[in-house]
């Protein structure tokens, strides 16, 4: 068994499970109290699926991850994250080593997938408030010729700030939007799960490389 994409998804799955209650509690404040439960169910199903074949091809693993999230998470998060992984899988086709340029292309496609499916933009208190700044920071990192790891680290920082920013704004998309001003002061669960994934991927990359 290699140490590449399979292990990275495994690490994300563990992180989601560790933060399951926290994500559900954040959702209880402004949504319907199921984000952690749903994400945990989804990633447990992803791991069961991936363990069947021990597949290591990057695109195939990402595609299976996306398809499984779509068919097991439910809610809005299932189609949104599922689409993100499917789009990244499309970009990763034929790739066995993820370079800095490939990584940003995959992240761009994933974020665009979430925007297309959710018809949301930055500033609406959604996962995009973590992901868009992360993507911008990643691009900036490349322009400054930083390494892939450094790009990921700055992307994480930007996503963290994005999550903090969601506390200050009113939700205009998703179930939290029904609360109007009452959503202000609460951290967005979707932005938080996005940050957890990005952070886990970065931590993973610190100790390994993303290759098959």
């Amino acid at each position: 068994m290699g140490s590449g994409i399979y292990a990275a998804i495994h690490a994300i799955s563990e992180a989601i499970n560790e933060n399951k209650d926290m994500l559900t509690d954040l959702d209880a404040a402004i949504g319907d109290a199921d984000h952690g439960i749903n994400m945990s169910r989804g990633f447990n199903a992803v791991m069961a699926k991936l363990e069947e074949t021990k597949e290591e091809d990057i695109s195939t693993v990402l595609k299976k991850t996306g398809m499984t999230l779509i068919s097991t998470v439910g809610g809005a998060a299932g189609p949104l994250y599922g689409t993100a992984f499917l789009r990244a899988a499309g970009i990763a086709q034929g790739t066995s080593l993820i370079t800095r340029e490939k990584a940003v292309e995959m992240l761009s496609a994933a974020v665009q997938g979430i925007k297309d499916r959710g018809k949301a933009v930055k500033g609406e208190k959604t996962m995009l408030d973590a992901l868009e700044p992360a993507l911008e920071a990643f691009f900036k990192g490349i322009n400054e010729d930083k390494s892939l790891l450094d790009c990921l680290e700055t992307a994480c920082l930007a996503a963290e700030q994005g999550v903090e920013y969601t506390k200050t704004i009113k939700a205009t998309k998703g179930r939290a939007s029904y609360l109007g001003d009452r959503s202000i002061g609460h951290q967005d669960p979707g932005a938080t799960s996005s940050l957890i994934m990005l952070r886990t991927l970065t931590a993973y990359y610190r100790t390994s490389t993303l290759e098959a």
Binding site: D32, I37, S71, G74, G78, P79
Partner: peptide, 12 residues
């Protein structure tokens, strides 16, 4: 039928 308070998935 989805999970409790959760939309069913597209395949269903």
């Amino acid at each position: 039928a989805g999970a409790v308070f959760t939309s069913p998935t597209p395949d269903q």
